[in-house]
Design a protein around this nucleic acid. Structure first.
Lengths: 205, 205
DNA sequence: TTAATTATACCAACTAGTCTGTTTATTTTT
DNA sequence: AAAAATAAACAGACTAGTTGGTATAATTAA
């Protein structure tokens, strides 16, 4: 055996992600990554067989973290499973709180970043993105299902697109927050989604 | 005098915009633009003094069209000015209809595209983007003001961020629509925003 | 020692941008 | 009206630097 390459690899991934969100993927050169990570070309191509391989790995790591966090949120609110409406609202509130804690605009989401230069990425990567988004849809849809069962909907609204709205608002808020350089926007926008759900599912008890 | 360069310039702008939304700005080379536009380097650099100049012009044209369309929408709904709630809903509905007519995902918004590779653009360009977004905010805020005057809000909600939500949802929906390759998403998402407004401002008649 | 990791020099392809010269339509002069 | 002059619009070879990627030598830790 020999020495541990994990710190190097992790550094490359962390710095790359930052650079990609600042410059775009095509706008980020390997040399820039080397400079920020304080490594050399040999090290980079030892850990990643190509720049495309880095793109794939970045998305793998990002989506894994994103979906792990989704699962955490589902688990954290699982105690409210008997009151689906409350559980749903709590779930959204968790992300409101998370975003409210930001002191600078959220640096951005790789789903959004990659979607604005789609030609740079393989179908495999694009499928990873759509799978992740559909996982969010499914999670929200399940919570909505339960809520609809116990509370009527105040007005007819499409369930699938309502589930999507959570991610839609996140993605849109990241963009506007960055464009206006206002870190508060994302939390405010999610709060409106919570309001919408509260109005849609009126209290029963 | 000599021959008319406008068709050439317009072709460059149209093809560039498409390419930038497909590849990102940094991911689009001048040579690619030449190929798609069927012109040569001489022609390109006759019309634009640099690639950065193209970026600026692209944004100038895009934001001008975007804000002109906003003004059209305001004018088209001006007849309902006596019923602010109805006017607001009509305004949103106009964009719902517009997006519902799409048969492929909306190719994307330059505000979003540029925001995901901010380092590529000058402060002047970024200011143009934030000014455009703030113009949207102002327009929606004015309609909301009038609506709040005549109809109470069913629940307390922040007016400024509510105004922002229109653009937030558009930007987010463009991304998710592209990622899932589903053209219907944008209209559906705007419909939910309309629902939210309807619930927030109950009818008084 | 030896396998794992990192450094450095290098390459071919591509990059934005320049340069000189040509084409084309209009204007001026005769 | 026809020839000559003018200037805008365009063509395409060329340059200096950058790109992603490779080859190989040198270190490092187990």
């Amino acid at each position: 055996m020999a020495r541990d390459g994990k710190p190097t690899r992790d550094k490359i991934l962390a710095e790359s992600k930052t650079l990609v969100l600042e410059n775009g993927f095509a706008g980020t050169s390997v040399d820039q990554i080397l400079e920020r990570s304080q490594i050399t070309k040999g090290a980079f191509f030892y850990h990643f067989k190509s720049k495309a391989d880095l793109a794939r790995t970045l998305m793998d790591v990002f989506s894994a973290e994103d979906l792990a966090d989704l699962n955490d949120a589902l688990k954290e609110t699982a105690s409210l499973i008997g009151d689906p409406r409350q559980r749903l609202l709590q779930f959204v509130q968790r992300y409101v709180d998370m975003m409210a804690a930001l002191e600078a605009p959220y640096p951005g989401c790789l789903y959004g970043s990659y979607s604005y230069e789609p030609s740079q990425f393989s179908d495999e990567i694009k499928e990873k993105i759509s799978t992740a988004i559909l996982t969010w849809r499914k999670a929200l849809e399940e919570m909505l299902d339960e809520t609809i069962k116990t509370h009527g909907m105040k007005m007819p609204a499409d369930k699938k697109s309502l589930a999507d709205q959570f991610v839609v608002i996140l993605e849109g808020a990241f963009i506007i927050s960055k464009a206006l350089n206002d870190p508060k926007i994302t939390a405010e926008q999610l709060k409106h989604f919570k309001n919408y759900l509260e109005l849609l599912f009126e209290k029963k008890d």
